[in-house]
Amino acid sequence: MDLILWRHAEAADPERGQSDMQRALTSKGQKQARRMAEWLTSQLPESCKVLVSPALRTLQTVEPLGRKFKVMPELAPGADPHELLRAANWPHARDPVLIVGHQPTLGQVAALLLSGQPQYWEMKKASAWWFVQREPNEPASLYLKAVMAPDLIVK
């Protein structure tokens, strides 16, 4: 199974009276989202399922990808890393799964997959980490296929 974790792009600080869920992308964040969406479009198979947090910044991050996606409340800020993996049906999903979410959860998931512990690993804004587990019942078949950040994409 392929699991791609995509952290939302740069978002504005909350305005007075605004909830964290309503934070929008900055202009820099919009550019980051477009660049990563172009790279992901060139890499992802058509069969990839896209799961997104209900926060505005994640919805705006995934929009340039131009694919259907499912909004999942269990991916909201503060999500449990084990719940995120359950939402993705890791490692048993037939098709690749792209999750657009938040720190620290995405970093915890990356750490859990690679080290067995949900540690606090940093994942840069708008970056994507691509994991592959060749055999669902063989944790040793897991590897990190790619880590990409928008500033590494050459146009």
Rank of each mutant, 00 (worst) to 15 (best):
L152V: 01
Q117T: 10
C48K: 05
W90C: 11
E138T: 08
A33P: 12
E63Q: 15
Q133T: 01
V132Q: 09
V52Y: 02
M72L: 12
W6K: 08
H102N: 00
L113R: 13
W39V: 04
K145D: 13
A79F: 02
G116N: 09
G101H: 06
R67I: 09
V50E: 09
L5T: 11
V97H: 02
E15M: 05
R86M: 12
S141N: 09
V132M: 09
M123K: 04
D151G: 07
H8D: 02
L144H: 02
P118I: 06
R67C: 01
T105E: 13
A37R: 07
M36E: 04
S53Q: 07
P96K: 14
Y120K: 10
G107S: 08
K68G: 11
P150L: 13
R23F: 00
L5S: 03
S127Y: 07
V50R: 11
D80V: 05
S19G: 15
S127K: 03
D2K: 15
M36C: 07
D80T: 07
V62Y: 04
K155C: 05
G17R: 09
C48M: 12
K155T: 10
L112R: 08
R35D: 12
K68T: 10
Q108D: 10
P54M: 00
F131T: 01
E74Y: 02
P136Q: 06
K31V: 09
V154W: 11
V147I: 13
M123I: 14
P118N: 10
Q43I: 04
V109W: 02
W90F: 12
P73W: 07
M148K: 14
W121E: 03
H82V: 08
A146D: 11
L106M: 12
A128T: 10
S47H: 09
A9K: 05
C48I: 01
R57F: 03
A93G: 09
Q43T: 08
K28I: 13
A11W: 00
V154S: 14
D20K: 09
L75M: 00
L44T: 03
L5A: 06
E15V: 08
H82F: 10
S53N: 08
L142C: 04
G17D: 07
P91A: 14
S127C: 13
L98V: 04
R34E: 15
L65S: 05
L75D: 03
V52N: 04
E122H: 13
T61G: 07
L112H: 05
E138M: 10
A37I: 05
M1T: 12
K31S: 15
W130K: 09
L106A: 05
V52M: 03
W129F: 06
L75V: 00
E138A: 12
S47G: 08
R67K: 10
R35G: 01
R16C: 00
E63Y: 00
S47I: 06
M1K: 14
V147F: 13
E38L: 06
K28P: 00
L144G: 02
G29C: 01
Q30G: 13
A76N: 06
K28R: 05
P136G: 11
P77Y: 05
M148F: 01
D2F: 13
P104Y: 12
K145C: 02
L112P: 08
R86C: 01
V97M: 10
